[in-house]
Nucleic acid binder design. Sequence first.
DNA 1: GTTAGCACTCTCTCTGGCCAAGTGCTAGAT
DNA 2: ATCTAGCACTTGGCCAGAGAGAGTGCTAAC
Lengths: 337, 337
Amino acid sequence: MNEPRKLEVLRAIVEDYVHYREPVGSKALVERHRLGVSSATIRNDMAALEDDGLIVAPHTSAGRVPTDKGYRVFVDQLTSVRPLSAAERHALQSLLDGADDLDDVLERTVRLLSHLTNQVAVVQYPQLGRARVRHIEAVALAPRQVLLVLIADSGTVEQRVVTVGEDLDHDRLALLRQSFLSSSAGKPVSQLGANLAAVMDSLLPEDRAVAAELATGLGTLAASSREDRMVMAGTAYLARSNSDFLLSISPVLEALEEQVVLLRLLSEMASDARGVAVAIGHETAADSLAETSIIATGYGRDDAKIGIVGPTRMDYPATMAAVRAVARYLSKILAGS
Amino acid sequence: MNEPRKLEVLRAIVEDYVHYREPVGSKALVERHRLGVSSATIRNDMAALEDDGLIVAPHTSAGRVPTDKGYRVFVDQLTSVRPLSAAERHALQSLLDGADDLDDVLERTVRLLSHLTNQVAVVQYPQLGRARVRHIEAVALAPRQVLLVLIADSGTVEQRVVTVGEDLDHDRLALLRQSFLSSSAGKPVSQLGANLAAVMDSLLPEDRAVAAELATGLGTLAASSREDRMVMAGTAYLARSNSDFLLSISPVLEALEEQVVLLRLLSEMASDARGVAVAIGHETAADSLAETSIIATGYGRDDAKIGIVGPTRMDYPATMAAVRAVARYLSKILAGS
DNA sequence: GTTAGCACTCTCTCTGGCCAAGTGCTAGAT
DNA sequence: ATCTAGCACTTGGCCAGAGAGAGTGCTAAC
């Protein structure tokens, strides 16, 4: 048995299946690829690949289809991530220029990635964790209601209304805010809780109770923050790929809306040597996503994730290239602003 | 011809079609409804309804299906919006309690509405227009970069980074901010631009250029604000209704993502005497939404819109009731906080 | 190790026939 | 004048059967 050719056959099967969207047979393979052997030989190789669990035949008289395991081997051993075309790079640059606001940048990016790959694209908000506190604002909305605003040097702004147990006039609030700010400005957001606790002693005893309430609020802002948020685009592509394939999109849409699952998946994915992480079919470990693959990578200082969700049968090399390229541009833009 | 009975037949057709999801024939009608006449008479009525353009037969040997016009008559003349059940009211109350943040409230609301109706639910962010300026914050991020934050008494917080033409130290920025604030605090957001312009004269001549830049930024915040944003939930329901009906969901998903179209539609919809607005099929005047209906209503002080998007074949009375009830609760909650 | 040939299996598609649903029309009943 | 009963007619949906086409695995020869 010729091992290199066997892998070559697997590659051909994956590529043809992705392209033509139907099971591929031995005859079609020798016609479309210069394998240099006859279809009978290919058939032997295919039988071996099937024994290895890399491909399956939907039924006796149909061609073969890659399994999740087959895609995995393809991605790991047969794929090199090629750079984007000049036109794609150009589109990328011109679409991302001219955005200022973080929300805006992320939204444009995710749309771009979606168009580039014809898949659903998702991007996680940068986490506050490694950012530093730029500013803390506290505004009295009502005698017992305070709007807390936490601004990090990453450009993210978090806000939250807290209700406190006693009345707070403007001056008193300003004083507390100043104490908080001087204790934490320029320090990492992740240490905000500790820094605020340390400042408590220096406050007037009668202020400590309410100060603790505010500190808790700020702590929540810093901790939960936006790490649990994401932006998404291109859900319509799901329906389109569905039309010519049997992927029930309803559970997928549910999973996408139930962002918790997806966020966990994304953060668990570790990029390989090529800088991209790929989860194929059941590897996603979520039933509703069993027929989809996720390609993701980190971006920015704190390695927030950006990626796409698409049918298992997708063009992995091209998509991996697009994800990686977009992530790099995004990192560059965020670092520059 | 018996006019009241003719309408009664239309009602029966709409209700049965919504319920059983297939064209309804004269025989089935007399079996399922107490119309007191024979199927032959119903057939005459149905022929008349078809002449009026209220129903159509997909083909000769099938039953009839309501047209958009038929649904319109049904909604206008045959529907009374009944209140929610006790269980629904309870779910509503318990789900919406315990939310503080505006984002949180809207998100919970839209999910709730989606679950209640089994449709895609959308809610527009409250507009700043009629709200008043609670606070203005300006934070120097870099010598020439300023983060502007506009806080309205509606609880919305808008932020934006602007780049200015000259360096701004902290003190100078604080001074400008104070001028802006004192000129506009407590005044309607809609007048922010005018108020800021008025304060220019009182500034030092060397500050005016940069102050104008900041004022422009704040004006943008106030004007565009979040009126062009919306929250959405339940897109998975689209796919589900699709499975037993021929509604190509891809264009609908596109339209939902392209929020501009939907937002325009929503703001153009005027509620009728019952407090709900309904756009049926082609009435939405958007090709991609030609097979969907929209039920919406205003909420809160500034009449922002909340509603659902679903297939033309939907349970109008129940959905109208749910939309109206949720909008009322939402208004109540926003007024109370 | 590769190839050619061949029998076999299975799905897909097309066809014709039948059935059930539903209609419109006409003639008669109320 | 209105409703009803009956009936001929149309038509899509369903089923069985035939045939084609694709693809395989196996065997024997190169």
